[in-house]
Design a protein around this nucleic acid. Structure first.
Lengths: 211, 211
DNA sequence: GCCTATATACGTACCGGTCCGTAACGAGTC
DNA sequence: GACTCGTTACGGACCGGTACGTATATAGGC
């Protein structure tokens, strides 16, 4: 029937935009992804209509639905992009302190604590999406849940490498700390609890080593 | 113009429903508040339409708008109700351990950690609302922000009473821990990071006393 | 060189449905 | 006769989604 492959209708991830990373992408699908990323993150997914996305992106609605089968799938694609950005930030912090997991997580929290106090900070796009869509089988929620499980696993590995007496407990402490920063960042802005992120993490890590 | 006082159009808080606490309230305004509380909390504010609220409450739309000037004001009223429930839970835990702030917060976290692992848990209605409405002047957001400031102040008082070396840091640690539980509760459910809430809090409190 | 066939990328115009909110009026009740 | 509520019917905006037509580029045949 259709001339489209199922692949392209999923808006396959990771493929480079056809135009220089900065500036406006040329292809409609890339302009949509970029605009969706900005609007969904800033205002929330439910708060943004597809009309607003296409008009701000300078494209038309059929172009959106040629690349994404529904708004929900576009939201899922946005979250996959967002997760990529998250891991980029996370691994960049880790790479700054090779072989020193405590310094790695502290470095990440230092950057996060800073960002979380900025006025344009809206928390974690993945956490926010999960809160917006409580239904277990929503495409956006699935992406978010998988990501959070991956992060918890990663933190557990790091806690082990830190020599924690109970790695799972330290990992969850760090996880809860991070999620707390995500939320309070947009609640308090500058001078909020995020300002003490590093100090709290260091205290927690040291106390977890004691035995 | 209107026969209504501004007071009643705001859906004045705290007034007892005219019928026994349990079961269906008799007055339309109370049925609306109860239904709104359930639906807004379970599915989110944006996700629930006023038509759904009035039909589930067994009332009609004009009855809603006779008591609340808009859906946003109904959302704000829901959050004021929700905040009341929060402080009831919080003070109940505190009352169980008079004069022992550490035991008080641990008691609260014990209960929260349990609730957060239940399948119907949807986090904190106030935090969720703030995430749904990033606009600074939204009625619902205002209620949420005020509450969060109150809670931070309360935790700082308790941290002082615990003899923490840096009460503000311990208070923020507890705050971030609590917000983290709110979020991860609905992300992971049973067996999530909330399961370690008490242990983490105790470790953090003890480490904050040391000096 | 010229014509045609096909594929790609996109736009115009429109769909039915749902959103929040209101107008006008009548009925029960203490 | 003041209060509370239901009934019916709208309205205008916006929602996610689609049927259908068009411009441009390239490839192949002769």
């Amino acid at each position: 029937m259709s001339t489209k492959s199922p692949e392209s209708r999923r808006g396959g991830a990771g493929l480079r935009p056809k135009t220089g990373e900065a500036g406006e992408p040329k292809l409609a699908v890339d302009r949509i992804r970029k605009t969706a990323r900005e609007l969904f993150y800033r205002e929330g997914i439910r708060a943004v209509g597809v009309d607003e996305i296409v008009s701000k992106a300078g494209v038309t609605k059929p172009s959106l639905y040629r690349s994404f089968s529904s708004k929900d799938e576009l939201a899922a694609a946005y979250l996959r992009d967002y997760e990529g950005e998250f891991w980029t930030r996370f691994e960049r912090a880790a790479a700054a302190h090779p072989g020193d997991p405590k310094a790695q997580i502290v470095e990440y929290l230092r950057g996060l604590g800073e960002r979380a106090q900025r006025s344009d900070y809206r928390g974690c796009g993945l956490s926010n999406a999960a809160l917006e869509y409580p239904a277990r089988d929503h495409p956006a929620r699935l992406v978010a849940e998988e990501h959070k499980h991956r992060l918890r696993v990663r933190l557990t590995e790091m806690a082990k490498d830190m020599g924690a007496a109970k790695p799972e407990v330290l990992a969850d402490a760090l996880f809860l700390l991070i999620e707390g920063i995500f939320v309070t960042g947009q609640l308090f802005g500058d001078g909020g609890p995020a300002m003490h992120a590093v100090e709290i993490a260091e205290t927690m890590i040291e106390a977890s080593r004691a035995r």
